[in-house]
Simulated scan of single mutants.
Amino acid sequence: MAVNTKIALVTGGSRGLGKNMAIAIAKKGIDVIITYNSKKEEADLVVKEIESLGQKAAALQLNVAESKNFDTFFEGISSTLKNTFKTDKFDFLINNAGIGIHKPFVETTEEEFDQLTNIQFKGPFFLTQKALRIMNDGGGIVNISTGLARFSFPGYAAYGSMKGAMEILTKYQAKELGARKIRANIVAPGAIETDFSGGVVRDNEQMNQQIASVTALGRVGLPDDIGGVVAFLCSEEASWINAQRIEVSGGMML
């Protein structure tokens, strides 16, 4: 008897942590839909890599800052599910897409604040709300936070605050969606070497060394440190993990 393959939707899956998550999820035997904002070529390469692992994959364009377009986006998802995956629902939503703005509290503009709100909180809030219409019962939501919601580094007041809001939202999602057996958890990476926020952790040697010095395991994080944790939360082994904040930081700022 054929086993119904589960499907995960990963926002911002064309590069960085999202790409790593998407590939790690595929390695668990789960089909994957990724979204990209502008990097279609990169997204197509991720799709090919997932297909090379023996899983089905697709990529759709999405700007999570523009919630007015979410209905149209999910029309595209429904069409993709039908045509590529031969089904009408998916199982896991990973709210990964995001940007970072590194600005002191006193210099953060209202425009920057609104941009972060739309991408980091309002976007995932309403994207998840609309996704629930075509999510299977018994599936899961994985939100993404940051170590900066637990400890503070100057320059991340707005960003850290939005992620703090996502952490509270995750608990409410877990409680209110429990009747549908949909789990909600949030993964909080520490500082990771990617092109995020202009590659500040990856490319700034002084910052890299500073972070390593306050991390118990003595180094900065890499994308490979994160993707597998998100993939685990989409597995049967994690079926009793719910409403949890899981920090993946190597023991930063203990």
Rank of each mutant, 00 (worst) to 15 (best):
P104W: 01
A238Q: 04
S52M: 11
F125M: 13
R150N: 14
K48Y: 02
K86P: 03
G12E: 01
N95A: 04
Q61C: 03
Q115D: 05
S239C: 13
S38D: 12
T146S: 15
K19I: 01
N96K: 05
G221K: 01
N4P: 08
V46I: 11
L62M: 14
L148E: 10
S197G: 04
V142F: 01
S78A: 15
N96W: 03
T84N: 13
F121K: 02
T11L: 05
D137M: 00
L9S: 04
I23S: 04
T128M: 01
G29C: 13
K163A: 02
M253G: 12
L169I: 00
D31I: 02
P154Y: 06
E112N: 12
L60D: 02
F92M: 04
A24E: 15
T128E: 01
N242C: 10
K68G: 03
N63W: 01
I241C: 08
F151G: 04
V220P: 01
E112T: 06
G98C: 00
S78T: 15
Q209H: 10
R245E: 07
A191M: 12
K86L: 12
G218C: 10
K175S: 11
Y36H: 12
L169P: 01
G12K: 00
N208Y: 14
G190R: 08
G199Y: 02
G54A: 00
K103T: 15
S152Y: 15
N69I: 04
S235T: 11
L132E: 02
M253F: 15
I25L: 07
S239M: 12
P189G: 13
G198F: 07
K28L: 06
P154Q: 10
N37T: 03
V106M: 14
S152N: 06
D44N: 15
E193Q: 14
S235N: 04
G54D: 07
F70D: 06
G251H: 09
I168H: 09
P124E: 01
A231V: 09
G228L: 11
A158N: 08
D91H: 15
